[in-house]
């Protein structure tokens, strides 16, 4: 991936749009890693590698469901960062998946904090407009909504841009010094992600009567299918 900041701008725009989708507009789940990372990979001509990273990150994302006021990772911008970093490294390089996944997870964590900050900021804006809104001003309600949407769009774009500027050179440097075989390094990161994904599904379905048996049956069938592929 190029070092020129202009190279990152299309990815930052993608990160902005996908970051907006997480909560503000339109929550169509284009921000889920399996979509966002694939789009990022596609943007730099490597959709298959983007998808591969998207599947890995989706395992992590299964754990974080966007319940109301809870704090959860922001996957839209993070998956653009992870997908583009992974897609930019040639296939078969040791450590590419580990470093890209780590960068995406760190970005998702910072994105989570940035959403909390924005929510507090939204409350400050709302208080500032309170007098007009209490008088029933439709234009104040619309302006407040548009301000929140714009701020979230900018938040996602800036987050993606900064993460790419920081992580791209680190990605190249670390992958260049990685001292483990590509096979083992990929197996480690897939094992970590699968463990989180399996625990996440267990957490979601364990309270439903009979669901644990469906899960056990599914895992059994999954191993049989995987064995035949």
């Amino acid at each position: 991936m190029g070092g020129d900041i202009l190279f990152y701008v299309p990815l930052a725009v993608l990160g902005a749009v996908l970051g907006l989708d997480v909560v503000s507009f339109p929550q169509a789940m284009i921000s889920r890693p399996i979509v966002a990372s694939t789009l990022a990979g596609g943007l730099i001509g490597q959709p298959v590698r983007g998808l591969t990273m998207g599947v890995l990150l989706e395992f992590f994302a299964l754990e974080s469901l966007p319940f109301g006021a809870s704090r959860y990772p922001e996957w839209g911008s993070a998956a653009v960062v992870g997908g583009s970093l992974f897609a930019a490294i040639p296939d078969g390089s040791a450590g590419a998946m580990s470093v890209a996944a780590f960068a995406a997870l760190v970005t998702a964590s910072i994105g989570s904090s940035s959403m909390v900050f924005l929510r507090r900021w939204n409350a400050i804006w709302a208080r500032g407009q309170q007098r007009r809104i209490a008088r029933g001003s439709g234009s104040a309600v619309v302006a407040l909504q548009l301000a929140g949407l714009s701020a979230d769009l900018i938040r996602g774009g800036v987050l993606t841009l900064v993460a790419l500027v920081v992580f791209s050179p680190l990605n190249r440097a670390i992958v260049g010094t990685f001292s483990m075989s590509p096979v083992i390094s990929r197996a480690v990161v897939v094992a970590v992600a699968s463990a989180v994904g399996l625990a996440a599904i267990w957490k979601v379905v364990r309270t439903t009567a009979g669901a644990r048996w469906w899960l056990a049956a599914g895992v059994g069938a999954g191993f049989i299918i995987a064995g035949t592929l």
Binding site: T52, V55, L56, F59, L62, P182, V183, R186, A187, V190, A193, S194, G197, L198, I201, V204, V205, T207, T208, G210, A211, R212, W214, L215, A216, A217, G218, V219, G220, A221, G222, F223, I225, A226, L229
Partner: peptide, 22 residues
């Protein structure tokens, strides 16, 4: 939730298998 348990149960090993590659 039951459908999710079944499909996710199948999907996780199959997708992990494809991700691991060599």
């Amino acid at each position: 939730a039951r459908a999710t348990a079944l499909v996710a149960g199948v999907a996780l090993p199959v997708a992990a298998h494809a991700l691991i590659g060599p």
